[in-house]
């Protein structure tokens, strides 16, 4: 008798669960990752807001300084200009970071005719993008600074960056938190991990100081015009 009641209780529970599951399907149940998503966005926004506030206070200091006299005003403007140039890639920068050397590894197996893997423009493009996702503040490939409008694209036999043809090995430098950048790049299943599997050698070295040059191309805007403030 006990076994009958036990079995039927279990059966009943199964029925009950089933019923609730069917009736709640389509309800507005919030999946956990949505909450995490929002929490992450909030964290990012708070961090950004803090930085904006620091910038505003730095600018007020500069404005105060500019109020003292003509020389001070010019100095303050020059400092602000330098800051914008560093951000845009128009001034050389340095700081801690990582240096990557990306090249094809000669396959030992298969005499001579072994396929030497070729590094595609898309892989370099993704690698640079990953460096920025990981928090890099400035990046260059073979001395070409990556700016807002820099392309990384195959043109003929070479990969062009800023319209300049580059060839392997590719030296990528990035400024940021060196150990965080390195570990993020080397995560299991990451682009670096996959490329290494495919026979491309990628050395990543943490550096106390990485020097990144300025963009040296021409600044010329044929189509874009600033929108004049309506005041």
């Amino acid at each position: 008798m006990f076994s009958i009641s036990f079995v039927t209780i279990v059966l009943g529970m199964m029925l009950g669960v089933q019923f609730r599951t069917t009736s709640s399907a389509g309800d507005n149940v919030v999946p956990r990752d949505r909450e995490q998503e929002l929490a992450l966005e909030k964290k990012n926004l708070v961090g950004d807001l803090y930085k904006l506030q620091v910038e505003i206070s730095e600018l007020s200091t500069k404005l105060e300084q500019a109020g003292i006299g003509q020389r001070e005003a010019d100095e303050a403007l020059e400092k602000e200009l330098d800051k914008i140039k560093r951000f845009a890639g128009l001034a050389p920068v340095s700081g801690p970071g990582v240096e990557l050397v990306v090249k094809s590894r000669m396959e030992k197996a298969g005499l001579g005719a072994a396929d030497v893997p070729i590094i595609a423009d898309e892989q370099l493009l993704k690698m640079v993008n990953e460096l920025y996702s990981a928090g890099s503040e400035a990046v260059a490939i073979n001395g070409q600074r990556i700016t807002a409008i820099s392309e990384i694209r195959l043109a003929g036999n070479h990969i062009n960056v800023n319209g300049t043809p580059l060839s392997a090995p590719y030296h990528i430098s990035a400024i940021g938190d060196a150990s965080a950048l390195k570990s993020r790049l080397e995560l299991k299943g990451s682009l670096v991990d996959i490329l290494r599997e495919s026979g491309i050698s990628i050395e990543i070295e943490e550096k106390k100081e990485v020097a990144i040059p300025a963009y040296i191309g021409e600044l010329y805007f044929e189509h874009a015009k600033p929108v004049k403030e309506k005041t």
């Binding site: 950004d48 910038e55 800051k83 560093r86 801690p96 400024i175």
Partner: peptide, 10 residues
């Protein structure tokens, strides 16, 4: 966003 950098030492 902000232009503030944490690692660029200049």
């Amino acid at each position: 966003g902000s232009l503030k950098t944490d690692y660029i030492i200049e």
